[in-house]
Design a protein around this nucleic acid. Structure first.
Length: 420
RNA sequence: GCGGGGGUCGCCUAGCCUGGUAGGGCGUGGGAUUGCUAAUCCCAUGUCCGUAAGGACCCGUGGGUUCAAAUCCCACUCCCCGCGCCA
């Protein structure tokens, strides 16, 4: 959600954002509904004022035993009129709210303008791609040969894009989670294991409406949705709160499974564990002062880099173009890990500054003194590690001639072994 | 799941029975007074509309009754206590 004043005073700026994002949005309708809504507020407020005045007068007359019948009759007609007016006002408010929830976030000036991922900008490369003197396998063959993933039975039990992890891959999964938590704890993040199901209101605070359809699973018969990432549950954690300024920034290390429909990804990455309905993730989530959020954003990215460097996975950092940036984010960096078996860089993490977009939707504010006007804070999120994709990178980059996989040194102590 | 108690302004609390402008304390900021400190007093401290003056809204949420609802009625929700069931 954007500042309504910004939209009112500066509609051209919003129009530019929509154009940069290559999005259709009925901005004129929205501005009109805002105007209608405000006009109705003025009218109903006025009527309420009259009502309050008469009410006070009735109370006074009753106290002094005077006849109030005339005033009561007056109140009846005012109340009726008000009720009628309120109905149209509620409708106007509804239209306005629905539209305001679908309007995307602003775009930062440093974001390259472009309609899709082809306009993304590579801003950094790290690491040397592994050289192999044998014919390498992709993670699908590797996991099949080594008995680390059972896709067939998962398909039988749950459907496509599910998997059973087995043996050492279960350990590798846990090792990644544990090492990521250790890593962020050292950086003074507070570990958070959130609820895996949250209600509609919380979900609406964190994402934009159409994402419900494409990514979010709904629990039948309950006001509950499976989180697509711990971000969804952590963003809403401080909803409706006014946070003490001195406790900012709040840095959380969220750990949770993530559930995603992956609708619209038909045919892409159909096999293996690269694109799946369920995976584990350790996430950075930060609540920050507005003036500090861009610094936090860079800091989060640097932590992601440090983590992948420690494991030893070559990567590149992409700055997403305006058209490829998610609707709640104003600027997003992706880390794309080198995956030898696919001979390409593939997205494994995503680091976004959402400015006050989520904070407004969820009413998360802060202030330094209790006599101050509370103001919206900024929220940021970044994957530290999404286990399935990182495991794909490890399997493919660290495979050995004998068909096994050597485990990156920093992870060995968590697994108790140096090879799979 | 059953029974009981509860949810009031950033925090604490009064008001609810008996309907008529939500009061007090704490904290925080500003001001007054004071030789300094302390104490005391005054003002400010939720949301929306409005350039402003001002006004409306706010008592967990949603309905209802009423001229009028924090207050009465209904439903839901969350928290606490007890019982039951359970990894």
């Amino acid at each position: 959600m954007l500042d309504p004043k910004l939209i009112r005073d500066n509609p051209e700026k919003i129009r530019e954002v929509l154009k940069a994002r290559a999005l259709d949005f009925p901005l004129d309708d929205f501005i009109k509904s805002d105007k209608e809504r405000r006009e109705l507020i003025i009218k109903t407020d006025e009527l309420r004022k009259t009502k309050n005045q008469i009410s006070i007068e009735i109370a006074r007359k009753k106290k002094s035993n005077e006849d109030a019948a005339g005033l009561i009759g007056q109140m009846q007609s005012v109340s009726q009129e008000l009720q009628r007016l309120e109905e149209t006002q509620v409708k106007a408010e509804d239209t306005y709210k629905k539209l305001s929830l679908t309007l995307p976030n602003l775009i930062h000036e440093s974001v390259p303008v472009g309609k899709d991922e082809t306009a993304n900008k590579e801003i950094k490369k790290w690491g040397n791609m592994p050289a192999f003197d044998f014919k390498i396998l992709d993670h699908i063959d590797l996991t099949q040969n080594l008995g680390l993933v059972d896709l067939e039975r998962a398909a039988k039990v749950s459907g496509a894009r599910f998997y059973y992890l087995k043996s050492q891959l279960v350990r590798l999964n846990q090792a990644l989670i544990q090492s990521a938590l250790d890593f962020l704890s050292e950086k003074n993040y507070t570990p958070i294991q959130p609820p895996y199901m949250i209600n509609r209101n919380s979900m609406e605070g964190a994402i934009i409406a159409e994402d419900f359809e494409d990514v979010i699973y709904k629990v039948e018969g309950e006001d509950l949705y499976l989180i697509g990432t711990s971000e969804h549950a952590i963003a809403s954690m401080h909803g409706d709160e006014i946070i003490e300024g001195k406790s900012l920034p709040l840095r959380y290390a969220g750990v949770s499974p993530c559930f995603r429909k992956e609708a619209g990804a038909h045919g892409r990455d159909q096999k293996g564990i690269f694109r799946v309905h369920q995976f584990d993730k350790v996430e950075q989530f930060v609540f920050s002062r507005p003036e500090e959020s861009w610094g936090e954003h860079e800091r989060m990215l640097s932590l992601v880099e440090e983590f992948y460097q420690k494991i030893g996975i070559p990567y590149r950092i992409m700055l997403l173009s305006s058209g490829d940036t998610g609707k709640v984010s104003a600027k997003t960096y992706d880390l794309e890990a080198w995956m030898a078996g696919q001979n390409s860089y593939r997205e494994v993490t995503s680091c976004s500054n959402c400015l006050e977009f989520q904070a407004r939707r969820l009413k998360i504010r802060f202030r330094d003194r209790t006599d101050e006007q509370p103001q919206y804070l900024h929220t940021l999120n970044s994957t530290l590690v999404a286990t399935t994709r990182t495991m794909v990178a490890i399997l493919e980059n660290f495979q050995t001639k004998d068909g096994h996989v050597s485990i990156p040194r920093v992870l060995q102590k968590y697994i108790g072994s140096s090879t799979i």
